[in-house]
Design a protein around this nucleic acid. Structure first.
Lengths: 124, 124
DNA sequence: CGGCATCCGGGGTGATACTG
DNA sequence: CAGTATCACCCCGGATGCCG
């Protein structure tokens, strides 16, 4: 496996350590919110995640998981004694606290979509 | 002025109306959290924002503000009677509720940076 | 003072094919 | 089953110069 450092995101992490941007940088990513959501109720295998996230490729899933791991919100565990071997992903302690933040975002998003919902459906 | 629709962001807004992604899409942007923060305490002029956000160009500020306006979280008001005329930006009702979400992100980010802080300074 | 047009680079992400 | 390597596209955002 490649070094975790290879998966560290490149966009300027020099944002003067602004906490808001730091948080957003962790969540940022096409599939990360969904992944975090899937892991909320306990560890999941790579294949389980891939099945749950309709449309994601193995490559994409790997990258997103590695970035989450590099950011310390996801923990990766390999069970080599089994064949075929099993790889499980779980939320770290920091990851679990992140779920609360995502809930806040969801709550706001629900209200936001409700307010604009009628407009949106009219468009397409 | 261009139509607000021209500033609607293009990334697939079709994400099945996931509230979390909807919320993140609104916040997403290099300067948007900072802009929202600056507007938290009341309306600000274009030039005030530009001065507060060290390093931003007028063009970048314009685009970010227009996107926030298109998303309904910022309201733009022109005062043409004055010369030089004045343009003010303020949070909409939806924008004000967004501030709470940003506070959550900040709180989490503070703890996150504190946990990793020591590691980070060692790096560079 | 505020805004727009244009060029341009880089990162994020998908598609595909291959490995232990 | 899980992961890697490579290619390619596209959007975001910075820089510059001009306009009312």
């Amino acid at each position: 496996m490649k070094s975790l450092a290879d998966y560290e995101q490149k966009f300027d992490r020099l944002h003067e350590d602004c906490p808001v941007r730091a948080a957003l940088d962790v969540i940022r990513g096409r599939w990360k919110p969904s992944i975090l959501y899937e892991l909320k109720d306990g560890p999941r295998r790579f294949s389980q995640l891939q099945a749950a996230l309709a449309g994601i490729t193995a490559q994409a899933l790997t990258v997103q998981l590695r970035q989450l791991e590099a950011d310390g919100v996801v923990v990766r565990t390999v069970h080599p004694e089994e064949t075929p071997f099993r790889v499980e992903y779980a939320l770290s302690e920091a990851g679990k606290t992140l779920s609360g933040v995502l809930d806040q975002l969801e709550t706001w998003g629900v209200g936001y979509l409700a307010r604009r919902g009628t407009r949106r459906t009219r468009v397409a």
